[in-house]
Design a binder for these strands. Structure first.
Lengths: 382, 382
DNA sequence: ATGTATCATGCAATCGATTGCAATTGCAAG
DNA sequence: CTTGCAATTGCAATCGATTGCATGATACAT
């Protein structure tokens, strides 16, 4: 073992069995380290003086034109098998891979799909929210399967132009928006000129953008009807109706009440979507409510889960004192105590649909919006 | 209202208050729709005959050179305030935004960070796994905050070149790998020549790549020592030690047993990471085990959660008959029944560290690996 | 040997923005 | 009305790969 001290670089490199191990004291790590270290690392490369950095370099080595190299590497275009093999071998030997940005610019495609999450009605919400995250994972799986990369962008719409900026950035071949939030107008405007756009969320009559989502009104109706059947008369809806989907769910609840001939109005409490933010709010609301609701329809599973916890802290029994039902059907509802009844949306099917339809739109087809059937999942909280 | 039927396009467009509403019957939606529809949609644009598609078009309109437009739009370079304002106004008026791919090619930056998830030891695993998903969300939040996009790529390493292909694709400015899986050698090799690379996972002496992760050995020791303190003598470890991090956790368990003077060897069962795959396996294992373990250390929360369910199906009581402890500290452990004891890794801190260090590496600094302290969370399953 | 068909390769324009350097303009002082 | 200087702007090369068209090479038939 040998220790080399490079004072100019302010840190030591220990060479040990041809591996390099950098010890950087905490304070020194704060400082910028000069570039030369890269050159030092070059020793592990095949060839660093004749580094091949583009197709022309390789063409020079191979004694052919850049065009030929391009054709050889891209498995397309007429070219003799012999030169193709020779150039491919050369590329491997020199560890060369064509620059994708240049390729993208030329062929006007990126091989990437954008997933954007607008946080309009709830600025504090994070991508780490269980619903987004679940959806995102499913989309990632579906897109990976089709050979696309996924470009994720969380955006807080401060102006009307956020979506335009994204879709025109040239970074993606198509865009999936998760949730309309309160941006339905923006979505419609962009959809009217930009085809490869699909949206997860609610469907309203006359909308221009192509959406995939469950029948939110029906889902709300299922949830409320279920609670009513279980004997609840005073219902509450926990969720902010400014979001299109939530508004539809609330509408469904009202429809169920009408159908059952209940006269009272449903109490609407615009709970936050994030558990940490919703917890104190719900605590305050339930603590100060004149009449405690007998049944609570939460606009999302996360809200329901939080409600469950608050009720437990109040010493109230679920489902005996209060019944709670969630919405989404996330996996976490399997593991709450008591196990949460919920309205399941087929997220896997939805994600597959979104991807499938987006690819069709990219190919130039047109696609109609899809409305999936929600499904009541009865468990122990109702 | 007026109904126009365009037989050539096979669908009807209803014009209503300047909005276009497409009714596409299910069957017809399957067919490719002719392109002209795009032109029809053009009516909502400001100017479609003089569509500005690049900087030169705008330059022509403004009566200046492309370079000037570039300077005006990019808030950099010398240019008079007057022309800058004029050109910016023109750009807004024509709804023009410069093409990012061309920009990227020219300045050799992308403004995007790659997150790649190698699934080496477990091909069936999906991105929708709660751990990945949680990590991904946190990374997305951290990166968004710094103004970077996130390019997600799930990869099943079939050859040695998967990471090279990704980092050299020119699509990203830096790369975060989540979990070493069984690819530590590949990571080291790439890290030796490609600086902007950081890895979430275990740390082993002599590793070349820069990693962030908790002290897996210590975490394993904490878990095992906790179970031993609770009276367990026969321990089992559920997880595949082929993954570096799991191997370290297992090592910690053995250390704890040694420290407690326990003579028996710990039973290792390489449970799958996915709940659906792990469930039948664990059922089979626990059903056929000669001696049931008294304490189970699961290599992840998901495995622990699945174990909990299997035990409940066997009619065994947790923690009375068997004690179970998880690893990761995901939010879902708050909601299992019984609430799951676990070893919490500070994923938020880890994600922030990963992003921070990656940006420092992009800037040319060097960074040392970070090892975070894991924390024992005692709840009701032990 | 020559014509011709076929296949492989080279040439050069192109995608759209950036930027070093040169040229021009504007403005004020002489 | 010059001259000088600085502030703007234009010019053209550049990033790296793709591709239509033209040219060159080869093989085969006549």
């Amino acid at each position: 073992m040998q220790v080399v001290t490079l004072t100019k670089l302010h840190f030591a490199i220990l060479l040990h069995e041809s591996r390099i191990f950098c010890c950087v004291p905490e304070k020194l790590a704060e400082q910028a380290i000069a570039k030369p270290v890269i050159a030092l690392w070059g020793h592990s490369q095949v060839n660093d003086k004749t580094r091949v950095r583009n197709i022309s370099d390789l063409a020079k080595i191979a004694g052919v034109s850049p065009g030929t190299v391009s054709r050889a590497l891209s498995d397309t275009g007429l070219i003799s098998q012999k030169t193709r093999d020779r150039i491919k071998a050369l590329a491997r030997e020199h560890d060369f891979r064509p620059n994708i940005m240049a390729r993208n610019l030329r062929i006007q495609k990126t091989g990437a799909i954008g997933v954007v999450i607008p946080l309009g009605h709830e600025t504090g919400q994070h991508i780490s929210d269980p619903f987004f995250i679940t959806m995102l994972g499913l989309l990632a799986d579906a897109l990976t399967e089709k050979g696309y990369d996924l470009v994720l962008s969380r955006v807080i719409p401060t102006d009307e132009d956020w979506l335009n900026r994204f879709v025109d950035s040239g970074r993606v071949d198509g865009t999936i928006v998760i949730g309309q939030s309160d941006q339905a107008a923006v979505l419609d405007k962009v959809a009217s000129r930009y085809r490869p756009l699909v949206v997860w969320g609610g469907h309203s009559a006359g909308q221009v953008h192509c959406s995939v989502g469950s029948d939110n009104r029906l889902g709300g109706e299922l949830a409320a009807a279920h609670l009513i059947k279980r004997g609840c008369e005073r219902l509450a809806f926990f969720g902010d109706p400014n979001a299109l989907e939530f508004e539809l769910r609330l509408q469904g609840c009202r429809d169920a009440m009408d159908a059952a001939g209940l006269s009272g109005e449903i109490t609407v409490f615009p709970a936050h979507l994030m558990a940490e933010a919703a917890h104190p709010d719900i605590t305050k609301f339930l603590g100060s409510a004149a009449e405690r609701p007998q049944g609570i329809i939460a606009a999302s599973d996360v809200i329901a889960m939080t409600t469950l916890r608050v009720l437990a802290e109040f010493g109230l029994s679920v489902p005996d004192d209060v019944k709670v039902i969630g919405y989404d059907g996330l996996e976490l509802t399997e593991h709450t105590f008591p196990r949460l009844s919920t309205v399941r949306q087929d997220l896997t099917g939805g994600a597959n649909n979104l991807v499938d339809m987006l690819l069709r739109r990219i190919a130039g087809e047109d696609t109609a919006s899809v409305i999936l059937q929600p499904e009541l999942v009865e468990r122990n909280s109702t």
